[in-house]
């Protein structure tokens, strides 16, 4: 019913173009991730490197996935922490250095 009223007044939300671009955006997030599993792997390695500067993590149990719900895609990471690093010097650039 609301849809009908919206359509009568030509509201944005009823535009099929908006629906198309939104569906396309979601499907491409998944397509592109599937095409390049090595992208997820590279991300995983980068995450490990960055996080390891702050805490000790279980690298073997680390999981990174793209989860799709109705109309959003989320990057979900499960990273078991083994130990926090005590000697993290706040403010100072880390010894390990970034890229």
């Amino acid at each position: 019913m609301f849809d009908f009223i919206n359509r009568m007044f030509g509201k944005e939300s009823s535009n099929s173009k908006t629906v198309a671009t939104e569906r396309l955006r979601l499907v491409l997030v998944h397509d592109r991730a599937n095409v390049s599993p090595h992208m997820l792997n590279a991300l995983k390695e980068d995450l490990i490197r960055v996080i390891s500067e702050y805490m000790e993590i279980d690298q073997a149990a680390l999981e990174v996935n793209l989860n799709q719900e109705d109309n959003s895609v989320a990057l979900v990471a499960n990273i078991p922490v083994l130990k926090m690093k005590r000697n993290y010097a706040s403010g100072a650039p880390s010894a390990a250095g970034g890229r």
Partner: peptide, 16 residues
């Protein structure tokens, strides 16, 4: 159809 909002326009496709 683009004008009516029922077809993707150039910028939508280019952006995606």
């Amino acid at each position: 159809m683009v004008k009516k909002g029922d077809m993707m326009n150039i910028f939508d496709s280019e952006d995606i």
